[in-house]
Design a protein around this nucleic acid. Structure first.
Lengths: 386, 386
DNA sequence: GGAAACCGGTCAAAGGTCAG
DNA sequence: TCTGACCTTTGACCGGTTTC
């Protein structure tokens, strides 16, 4: 078992799911015997339930059996973690009637249950996710550090990765939260540049990325830079409701963008960032692990414009690697049936994101036409102009 | 469930109410299935009965149904405890075993549902795929039929679906293959219109689509029409190598589009249709089942522009339905490990497709500016112009 | 080494189903 | 309609393993 913290459940502690008396910490959450068993059975069987009502049924001791969909959702919501479910209890004991005899040739027997894991696969996938998550957290620290802005894109790609030299960096007070205030054009520009620079440091942590030729690196980065920017902006936005994107500094953008940040001739894409990315992320309850893996999938885009034909197979292979890791992470956490749905829904956010990025590109073209008014930073230009 | 004690009912114990064979302790009293169920239903429904006689009717196995008043009184008299009755539970779905009609010697599917359970599971998914495939094949026949072009989009959406009236239609000789030849602008226009009309017939086969309001139908259709067009074009293109898209008539488009079909000011998107859709489809060996399900996923886009907020949840639910069905189809066919990869790769084609569609939209804008030269068909305009 | 904590397994007894 | 044989689901309890 994982080194889960062993704690004593306080006398009188209640089940986080149904408020019955908790019998201990089960799957990481104080819970009663009923909810504990219900959660395990649901994961192991892979059952998926459909709410007969609106998906917001009450769950308490008296009615906990009334809607299995909402009960299971509550289990997940209060933090029950399916990874604490053990599937190989019979490693020594001969209690189990039938053992999965062997996976010779066909290998089809693992079609259905998550529990019959392919042993060589999951540890590797876990490692991948763990690694991505670590990088993600480093990134979150770097976001609030002083970053020199002297280098251009190519120079930055060639330089050693800042994420591994964080001890040499100092916090930047202009990034820290004081209070909410409407973002100015300057705020938005500052955060764009900062996030794009962060993105360059981030991509350098991928071994397979660094192996690519300079021009292939540029192709992937130019394809991905603004996606990285927008995804981080909305994912790490403070949650002040569905109508505000809030930067770490407290600067916010409203659904109906303030006049001061509107650009004539450009269609606002902020409301779409909220409706099609921020809200779905929150609804899907995307964890930092899933978020990091999703970004890796998007970075390794074999269809990136100007990517060389030679690099495509490698890029595709990396994408597949992160897709698999993401799937195993999600299906282990949520069970196969729910996992399949969450995985599908997450991936199907990609076309909407692409569409928003395309709209942004178009806006940049417009801004370029009025260059004398809306000067686009040269760094941003290098990364985002076609 | 508050079992007072864990005890087994002794062999040959009789029902305390009617002296039938007891199946266990129910509500604190050894009783038969009939009296157990009768007691619960009476309590839950709140019915009160009146005795037709003197209130002292005999209650035994043979006459226990004669007087419900006296049966219920006896239940109480022998100690059945209404406090052991619980609240309503969730539905559990069909309990009768059903056989898969497919003949399959390997007996593997017994793993899946030895005893069936919740309403939506694999058999439902199979049905979904089967249904989509049937429609897909009807579509392929309709593609080569004479189609009147008199109606506009809304009228077409209101009319009965042609796919169910194919016997009234005649083959259109202009669609049949004679020989390969370079497509003219007229060929391309003709096939665009034909495929878009086909798309309107196709969407009408979706029950959930037809249920939507007129404006929501329009939102989905306008979002999806050109995707349907391009996907069918490349999926059903004859395979004459990676550099040709070939219409059923034999008209072909080259990777480097012929001058005759180039539009000044517009970026060619044909090579991208080949590289990012046609070739991946072939590499992934996408079957007609998978292709049909993938299109259904793309049709039900909850982020479609101008889709009403009320319709979003329904659209999302449909998307999830087809995502699940697609996954189960693929994972059954390829096994979990390879299935996950194929599923992920297929879904991740969506952003590239979106990008191509966006480029096409932009081209349409350009064409519109030169309207006097490139007249866009009004039907196409209705479906594809923003 | 022993107690505490939490894992999965068990099965009597709840509720749900659907021909008859 | 109501009934009840037959089905699934539930959860208190148990033994085993791991962690202090």
């Amino acid at each position: 078992m994982q080194p889960r913290q062993r704690r004593k459940v306080p006398e009188g502690e209640l089940c986080a799911v149904c408020s019955d008396r908790a019998t201990g910490y089960h799957y990481g959450t104080p819970s009663c015997n009923g909810c504990k068993t219900f959660f395990r059975r649901t994961i192991v069987s892979g059952h998926t339930f459909v709410c007969q009502y609106n998906g917001n049924c009450d769950v308490n001791k008296n009615v906990r059996c009334a809607c299995r969909h909402c009960r299971f959702n509550k289990c997940l919501a209060v933090g029950m973690d399916a990874r604490a479910i053990q599937n190989d209890r019979d490693r020594i004991g001969p209690t189990k009637k039938f053992r999965m005899e062997k996976r010779n040739s066909s290998g089809e027997e693992d079609q259905i249950s998550v529990t019959s894991s392919s042993p060589q696969q999951r540890p590797a996938d876990d490692k991948v996710i763990e690694n991505l998550t670590g990088i993600e957290q480093l990134c979150n620290t770097l976001r609030s550090c002083v970053m020199v802005e002297s280098k251009n894109v190519k120079e930055t790609l060639m330089s050693p990765c800042l994420l591994y030299r964080m001890n040499t960096l100092e916090p930047d007070p202009s990034t820290t939260f004081r209070n909410l205030y409407p973002a100015s054009m300057e705020d938005i520009k500052m955060w764009n540049i900062r996030e794009l620079r962060l993105g360059l440091e981030w991509v350098k942590t991928f071994e397979e990325f660094v192996k690519l030729s300079e021009s292939d690196q540029m192709a992937l980065v130019r394809n991905f830079a603004f996606t990285f920017n927008i995804l981080n902006r909305v994912y790490y936005s403070g949650d002040y409701g569905p109508d505000k994107i809030v930067y770490p500094s407290g600067a916010y953008i409203l659904r109906q963008a303030q006049d001061s940040v509107k650009i004539p001739g450009c269609r606002s894409i902020y409301h779409r960032q909220m409706d099609e990315i921020m809200i779905p992320f929150r609804k899907l309850d995307v964890s930092i692990h899933e978020f990091a893996a999703f970004k890796a999938v998007l970075l390794f885009n074999p269809d990136a414009c100007e990517l060389s034909a030679e690099a495509k197979p490698d890029v595709q292979r990396e994408r597949t690697k992160y897709l698999s890791a993401l799937f195993y992470y999600i299906s282990t956490k949520y069970g196969l049936h729910h996992g399949v749905q969450k995985y599908g829904q997450l991936l199907m956010m990609a076309p909407s994101i692409q569409n928003i990025i395309d709209q942004n590109d178009e806006n940049m073209q417009v801004m370029e036409v009025f260059e004398h008014i809306w000067r686009i930073d040269s760094f941003v230009k290098e990364l985002c102009m076609r």
